[in-house]
Amino acid sequence: MRIAFYGSSLVSSYWNGAATYYRGLLRALAARGYRITFYEPDAYDRQKHRDIDDPDWCKVVVYKATPAGLREVAAEAAQADAVVKASGVGVLDDEILASVMAQARPEALKIWWDVDAPATLASLREAEDHPLREALPKLDGVLTYGGGQPVVEEYRVFGARDCIPIYNALDPETHHPVPVQEDFAFDLAFLGNRLPDREARVEEFFLRPARQLPDHRFLFGGAGWEDKPKSANIRYLGHVATGDHNAFNASPKAVLNVNRDSMAQTGFSPPTRVFEAAGAGACLITDSWRGIELFLQPDEEVLVARDGQDVADILAGLSPEEAREIGRRALRRVLSDHTYDRRAAEVDRILRSGFERKRLEVMA
């Protein structure tokens, strides 16, 4: 089956948190025989900050982020058996959705793949004339990065034929334990880009504990935080390329996950960082959100903090031996239950059954 996938970027994680999600899932689908072309715009300097070369398991087409550039690649949707538009491309999003779905063959599956469902649904609630409202009933289904039953139910209210969460997971070929690297051997590390709906939570869960624990060392990665006030015990790295993620996660005593506001409120939305850290054998401390126990067991495989004071208390009382044991348990759990091979098996079932249903509908 041929898939035309229109997303933000497969080859660059620069201002693009979905990159490793795309890579893990699409590589696992390619291993199942899918022929995939990923179409991404040349935008936000992502091509200047590539993490990977074009992979051999997916064709990558980079197009000019202009209406003319879009027209060229939208026409190629007519060659695919499944046409996927992902959320959050960042440029011409509404135009991409309309153009590629208009070019898709009648028997092709038309999929909206939402990598930020809580934020998308908030936009749909606020704007009655949102283009996605009109498009949803005409599509064959919605796949989401997460969100659980609350997201599923709301997408159906907005007219989606079906909505199925395909959660983040681990690609053990990419994210795995590595030897400790001294440059990253701090007490607590956090990695995340600066976004409006994450900033206050980063202040609470990371910057506040750093101020409270001046004798501990904190490592701060992610783009956009250069001018953010930081205590003297914080080392700021800026953007951390995916090639350094294993060392970044495996070297500190603990690694912190901080969800964005909408994902924390909705729950059931583990970000890629959770599985990348667990896959490297890290001791993970996460902010509290509904559904964490579906992925990692609190107190056994992950430590859960309600606020910055909890983070400080956990870190102050956490021994290196305890941290290593939690990391080992987390690694066992994600390798057993949460790999992209498992997620791809579910997507394979969805696409094949949907394509067969669509073929029969067209023939009727």
Rank of each mutant, 00 (worst) to 15 (best):
D51C: 08
L331H: 04
T242D: 05
Q309M: 05
G221A: 06
D183R: 04
N168S: 12
A223L: 10
G17N: 05
D140M: 15
A247I: 05
P229L: 00
A189R: 09
A282I: 05
D183G: 09
Y44T: 10
D114C: 15
I52N: 10
L318F: 01
D94V: 13
E173T: 14
V178Q: 02
M263F: 02
P106Q: 00
P177R: 05
A119E: 13
F186Y: 11
R32I: 03
A98K: 15
A4Q: 09
M363R: 13
D299C: 12
Q103S: 09
D114H: 04
D227T: 13
R273D: 01
W112G: 02
E356Q: 01
E107H: 15
A19S: 08
D54F: 11
G238N: 05
R201M: 12
Y63D: 03
W15A: 12
D171H: 12
A80Q: 10
D56G: 04
A68F: 12
S353E: 14
D56S: 03
A223N: 04
W15L: 11
L121Q: 06
A330I: 06
E293H: 06
F190Y: 07
W289L: 07
G222K: 00
E321P: 14
G238V: 07
R217E: 00
A323C: 08
A75W: 09
G7P: 11
E199Y: 14
D42W: 09
R2P: 13
P298R: 15
R50Y: 15
A241G: 10
V152H: 01
A102Y: 03
D116V: 10
A75P: 00
R324W: 10
V304C: 04
V202T: 03
D287K: 08
V311M: 09
V180H: 05
A75N: 05
A4H: 15
F190A: 10
N249G: 12
A277P: 00
L132R: 07
F5Y: 05
V73L: 12
A78W: 08
K253V: 15
R46E: 02
G291H: 01
Y44I: 06
I292R: 00
G224Q: 04
A185R: 06
L331Y: 02
I326N: 03
R349Q: 08
A330M: 02
L296E: 06
H130Y: 03
L25P: 00
A4W: 14
L335V: 13
D287V: 14
T174G: 08
A117N: 01
P41W: 01
G17D: 09
A75F: 09
Y34S: 02
Q181D: 15
L10Y: 04
G267C: 02
F206K: 15
V202K: 01
S13P: 13
G317R: 03
R324Y: 08
A278G: 03
G281V: 07
A108V: 04
L195Q: 15
V347E: 01
L335E: 14
G33P: 12
T120N: 05
S319G: 02
D53G: 08
L351F: 11
W289A: 08
L132S: 03
